[in-house]
Design a protein around this nucleic acid. Sequence first.
DNA 1: TATGAATGAGAGTTCATTCAT
DNA 2: TATGAATGAACTCTCATTCAT
Lengths: 207, 207, 207, 207
Amino acid sequence: MRTKNISDGQKLPSFIEVARRTQLIECAIETIATQGYAQASLAQIAKQAGISKSVITYYFNSKETLIEQVVKEILTDAAHFIGPQLAAQSTARLRLQAYIQAHVEYISTHLKQMMAIMEIAIHVRTEEGKLRYGTATEQPVLTALKTLLRKGQEEGDFRAFDLHVMAVTIRRAIDALPPVLIADPDLDVDLYARELVTLFDRATRKE
Amino acid sequence: MRTKNISDGQKLPSFIEVARRTQLIECAIETIATQGYAQASLAQIAKQAGISKSVITYYFNSKETLIEQVVKEILTDAAHFIGPQLAAQSTARLRLQAYIQAHVEYISTHLKQMMAIMEIAIHVRTEEGKLRYGTATEQPVLTALKTLLRKGQEEGDFRAFDLHVMAVTIRRAIDALPPVLIADPDLDVDLYARELVTLFDRATRKE
Amino acid sequence: MRTKNISDGQKLPSFIEVARRTQLIECAIETIATQGYAQASLAQIAKQAGISKSVITYYFNSKETLIEQVVKEILTDAAHFIGPQLAAQSTARLRLQAYIQAHVEYISTHLKQMMAIMEIAIHVRTEEGKLRYGTATEQPVLTALKTLLRKGQEEGDFRAFDLHVMAVTIRRAIDALPPVLIADPDLDVDLYARELVTLFDRATRKE
Amino acid sequence: MRTKNISDGQKLPSFIEVARRTQLIECAIETIATQGYAQASLAQIAKQAGISKSVITYYFNSKETLIEQVVKEILTDAAHFIGPQLAAQSTARLRLQAYIQAHVEYISTHLKQMMAIMEIAIHVRTEEGKLRYGTATEQPVLTALKTLLRKGQEEGDFRAFDLHVMAVTIRRAIDALPPVLIADPDLDVDLYARELVTLFDRATRKE
DNA sequence: TATGAATGAGAGTTCATTCAT
DNA sequence: TATGAATGAACTCTCATTCAT
């Protein structure tokens, strides 16, 4: 499965192509994060990149595709960082703790990306009017978290809370961080993480 | 001090005017809630109302003003519903419980309004690029919640958690409900409320 | 010849009708003079008069008609002031002197009206795109002035200049006054008039 | 100090760009001159040019900018034509004569431009409601003319008239020409110029 | 006599996209 | 590989006018 780009039937993407695509995705993220999705017109993104508007539609056929790539890029990178940290834990309690801490750490070190993806999730809709990267895409994320929580219940670490409510609440607590960090860049993120861990540890544990 | 009624210096709005304004605010809410803020052009809202575009700028001078009225209408109504329920509680724990339950109930019975106001909060920006009804407006809400929580700590009901983290988490847990309800309209909201109450009761209480 | 108003076949215009029409013409002049013709929408004029927009189209069927009346009113009044002063003079030289002085005096005491009529002359066009009150209407004015000048030549007071050039130049010298007075309200208008008289006396006289 | 040419930091405008900008300025002048400023919407100008409305905002960011360019273009060209002819004269009397003749000649050969710039001067206002290219811009022009006249007085060529009155009158006499020429395209402009020269020579000279 | 309600046309502007080079 | 040129649709807003009351 190769990315469907303009040189498909014949050659692999050239070096310059990879570089440009990377650069444009970077610039899109930067623009969306700092100015908001509504201001992130192709013209703005091109200006940010110091190139012409048409370059964008040259490498990505449409704005839609560019945004897709941005989302893919960010989600993949985040998964690479967070996934292994969960796998390393032996109990559900530790896994939840790691889940929160890994997310907080990633968010605090990738604030721009997180702002961008939230802007996208909030703004982009399909032709039928549904959010394209919103709750829909969130489903698998929630499912994974619910699995983690259910295991904790089965193993006797967690009490009998409603999986959906707890999963949603945890996710939103994490998603709240980016704007909080924007508003207060000097925030002590480790403390924030520890507070969240404690909060949800108490909220989930058996007694 | 008179109720702003008859012979007040400025003309009374006619019956039709009141009706139209109400209808247009209604239609704006409907359109924003169902199609998203970006799709809610004056043309769309007018179509929804079955009238011409110009009627909107006739009653509200600008789109900006219309949105202001929508926000005001929704927030006022919500405050009228929720405020008294908090005041009736004697302890911080009960107040937090009431805070959550009142919000959940109001949201579940005013889903359209809640979707609309969240869309607005997320999309509308000032000329300088800041969110107009976003974090800024949220500040007083958070402050009020923090005051409630601090009191609980001072009275010995609550443990020594970080006020900001807890307040943000509670708010986001509540704000999560509208899209959850949209995705699953048959959701048992009372259960949802009870689960949230338990969750945050455990998260906050002393031991 | 009566003004064709709404109550034509039957009664004479009522007192209130006359008053309203006068008031609206006044307000139109005020608005046009101070804010410019482009800003003088019916809404603005109505606001100035403290009445509803529809009143204007009630008394004058259209904006076009209102403007017509404004022009008529102003021109008639000016003619009443200036005409007799010319008739009183015995020689062409004195008549030209009176022409200039009467105009300057009238302009300086009716600045608002003069600004309004110049704005109208400049802005209002017919459906075919010609100026409605511009050069076209100016023609009779120029003709009258040329007659005065020709007489002076025939009587031997004036030298053999081109009538058209001289008439146009005199008119424009006079028309220049309103904006000059706006820019410098403390201007010594008598001096201005005397300077103009001298200027054109030297320009016209035989040797 | 280099002529701003190649490798200047900012990109050179392409041939097409120069051509289009020229064409659009041309078409703007044409439309404004023939139909009046009020009718010169972007749609009209685009129609005149046979292109789409968006092309105009592509080359000039806004209508405001387009008009600025139109004004700049016209004034620059006129100054290039008239300036040198004044400098070539030795006495004030000759300079005034050249002033009038150069203006008349330029106007008669650039009638469209002159009509356009007068329309613009009359119509375009700043946000505060002042004329943008009106009396304000006229000030330096009047000042220059007054300087010429004062010199004539100092050198003993001219009598002791009021500088302001004379300058204004001369300017208005010149500004009167465009509409006069429109009304009568077969007018003998040389005669017109000679008549004006004589008129103001007599009006200004010592005895 | 006077008004508020409503409309439709047209204004300037923004934007993603297409196309030829 | 990259760009400038051009388009058309949609946006918010203004305005003179019509109509029922």
